[in-house]
């Protein structure tokens, strides 16, 4: 018997269920095609303006910094300001994400922009999130041809742009969005949910920011 058959038959023997159990199978299929709604905390069910406010508050609680701008055109300026305020070199890396590419980066004369995946030498990376989760201040980023995952982890500073209208109250709503965007049961290679900058408490339980991932997470909320 293969490992597969051995393990499955042991499970069935312990559960005392026959293999061709149609009743169980239909329950299982139904749950996967129509996931039942669980318990959604009240704080994940706020209306739009409060929702964005809660997102910013929770993200800051998780040690992210947050900036809000009115329109996508103002993002490059906000990024330049972030670099200047922290005395960082005017250089960022980003993927070819269309939402980012359409922004007027050229207006930032001295800003140097690297494109594509990070090889670990970038001080600052810029990404665009699919959305945010207000209840925990979490960003959701998906990998793809124009969205390298390495940018989310290798640079010292990670700047993430998210549209205010893409901030949902709860985690389930964002997963719902992924299902609609990519098709049921289909997923991009990587979905990163990010809540604050990287950290470790492994030495004497002392919380330190900047473990292996970015030391700083800066969120630019648009709209």
């Amino acid at each position: 018997m293969s490992g597969r058959e051995t393990v499955l038959s042991k499970i069935r023997a312990s559960l005392g269920t026959p293999a061709g159990d149609d009743a169980r199978r239909s329950i299982v299929e139904a749950r996967m095609s129509r996931p039942p709604k669980g318990v959604i905390p009240a704080r994940g069910q706020l209306a739009a303006p409060e929702r964005v406010g809660l997102f910013c508050e929770m993200a800051e609680q998780a040690n992210a910094t947050v900036d809000r701008v009115k329109s996508p055109d103002l993002v490059p300026k906000a990024v330049s300001a972030y670099l200047r305020d922290r005395n960082l070199a005017p250089s960022v890396r980003m993927g070819d994400d269309r939402r980012l590419s359409k922004m007027p980066w050229a207006e930032q004369k001295s800003l140097e922009i690297g494109r594509g995946r990070s090889d670990g030498d970038d001080e600052v990376g810029v990404s665009h999130a699919l959305g945010g989760v207000a209840e925990t201040g979490t960003l959701m980023l998906v990998s793809g041809k124009d969205n390298p995952t390495t940018i989310n982890f290798l640079p010292e500073h990670h700047i993430v742009v998210v549209n205010a209208k893409d901030i949902d109250g709860d985690l389930e709503s964002l997963f719902g969005r992924i299902r609609r965007k990519f098709g049921r049961g289909a997923m991009p290679r990587t979905v990163n949910m990010v809540t604050g900058p990287s950290r470790s408490g492994d030495i004497e339980q002392k919380l330190l920011l900047g473990a292996h991932g970015p030391r700083a997470l800066h969120i630019v909320v648009v709209g």
Binding site: M58, Q61, A62, E135, T136, G137, T138, M187, P188, R189, T190, V191, N192, M193, V194, T195, G196, P197, S198, R199, G213
Partner: peptide, 13 residues
């Protein structure tokens, strides 16, 4: 924490 810093969903190569 309300949520750990990185929750990563990986699907295939």
């Amino acid at each position: 924490q309300d949520m750990s810093v990185y929750t990563t969903v990986s699907t295939g190569p």
